[in-house]
């Protein structure tokens, strides 16, 4: 798994690629958590480059949504891989957080 963090105005984008499984999910949890601790509470987690995500990744995302909202912000998701999307849908994730198909849409949604 690889992550790249970038800033667009007040929004922090965490772009993830390769696989988020039980081995790598902890690194993603830490990356997102570090942002929130530093006061960057409005986040977009971009999963467009993710080839595979298991329930371990979902666990990370659920925890991160809770953490960002507790800090007064929000976390939104970008998903375009049909497999990753299915994992989000099976878990009812769409009822909990906003899911977009592009990073631009997700970033724009914060100012809507």
């Amino acid at each position: 798994m690889k992550t790249e963090v970038k800033q667009e105005n007040d929004i922090t984008i965490v772009a993830v690629s390769e696989s988020v499984d039980a081995l790598t999910a902890a690194d993603l949890t830490k990356t997102i958590s570090d942002q929130i601790s530093d006061g960057r509470v409005n986040l977009v987690v971009d999963l467009a480059g993710v080839e595979f995500m298991s329930s371990a990744g979902l666990r990370t995302l659920l925890g991160a949504v809770k953490e960002s909202r507790s800090a007064g912000g929000d976390l939104r998701i970008v998903s375009s891989n049909p497999g990753v999307d299915k994992v989000l849908k099976m878990s009812g994730f769409h009822n909990i957080a906003k899911v977009f198909t592009s990073s631009a849409q997700a970033v724009a949604s914060f100012s809507a």
Binding site: R59, K66, M90, N95, I96, A97
Partner: peptide, 13 residues
């Protein structure tokens, strides 16, 4: 899978 976020357990999937 229909529970609101406040009642969600993180694992168990």
């Amino acid at each position: 899978v229909d529970a609101p976020i406040e009642e969600r357990e993180l694992g168990g999937f």
